[in-house]
Nucleic acid binder design. Sequence first.
DNA 1: TATCTAAGCTACGGCACCGTATCGTAGCTA
DNA 2: TAGCTACGATACGGTGCCGTAGCTTAGATA
Lengths: 205, 205
Amino acid sequence: MSTKSRSAGEPAEGPEPLRRSKEAVKAASLAAAYELLTEFGLSGVSVDEVARRSGVAKTTIYRHWPSRTALLFDAVMQFAPRLQTPNTGSLRGDLTSLALGLAQRLQTGRWSSAMPSIVDAAERDTEVAEFQSRTHAGMMSGFGAIAARAQARGELDQKLDVSELTAAIAGPLFYRRWFSRQELDEAFVRGVVERALVWDCSSHG
Amino acid sequence: MSTKSRSAGEPAEGPEPLRRSKEAVKAASLAAAYELLTEFGLSGVSVDEVARRSGVAKTTIYRHWPSRTALLFDAVMQFAPRLQTPNTGSLRGDLTSLALGLAQRLQTGRWSSAMPSIVDAAERDTEVAEFQSRTHAGMMSGFGAIAARAQARGELDQKLDVSELTAAIAGPLFYRRWFSRQELDEAFVRGVVERALVWDCSSHG
DNA sequence: TATCTAAGCTACGGCACCGTATCGTAGCTA
DNA sequence: TAGCTACGATACGGTGCCGTAGCTTAGATA
């Protein structure tokens, strides 16, 4: 009821400054919003609740963001994950590594729990839809990088449509995670990658 | 302000019976709920709005369903679509037809607009999750039927995992519809099916 | 020490929603 | 005609939310 937080993040116990700096306040608000987002989805992020969790006064939050939506955008932006692009030297190795990383994120990442609510919002709000498209493209850019390298090595057909390759691999993973709700084990992921490789390498030649 | 509706569906203008039968009232409520669901997603279905749209008094709605959630379940159940299983005589023909039908539904079906909100709800409510799994399995049962026939004809490896085949085809379609937000043209759909066939037929032999 | 910036608190008006209570009444059936 | 069933209208209590107002005060800076 009295001891307030210390810096970005949870309400800690240090009796430090009862008043936080502008930056600390913004960070704490965003952290709480992020937390709520992953826990309850977009609709679970209310300004009142962010204020409660962060220990930042609601009025203060409104001094930093003009509306709930603005805060939400900032929070989503902040943690939009980007898959890091592996470089194993072979197309098969790269794709397998990337796919396994993606599967990992899908299963354990807190982001994957917030995703459906964003997709849902995008369904009826064009601004969100554009934002989501952009963010998503960024997240999946690893596929493009990998394909480009493979093409440079002559390992992959020059005129292959990267977006098809991406859909062929990410699609089945996403499908299992959110639609059929089956397990995403390593065998499945490797199978998906092999399927994509069979097509791209042998069937075109 | 005064003239009420006629039967199941929209508030029509005929000054017909101001009081509808028990059945008509239930049908009208469900129809309105369905409409709101496809238009605004799960969270857009409020009892007040259902009452407004259907012309059924809120009190009456509560006489038929104990809670908003119960009404929602009924409404979702009612229209959960089931892809009809084609029978063209060949595996390629069947899968292509099924996939094209699915793509069609994804792009034009009102159901596809409600889906993300259900997935989102399933993310944090196990009851919804189970419901969704079941419904989804039913919707995708066509793949199993097709595969079984192909296996009986010896066109398909007996030990193929149908769920992998389903994921390989439905996955990329869903992915494009909701995640990458790209167009789902016929060429893409056919490509996805070919990819699946290449694997299942040649690579195993 | 004086000043100024920005955080904190309490409270509010407005709205949408859930679920219930109360009363009135249409229309069927005995 | 009497009575029963189920719908309709209004209203309410309670909650959660958005965004704002008014005021206080900590802490950095000049």
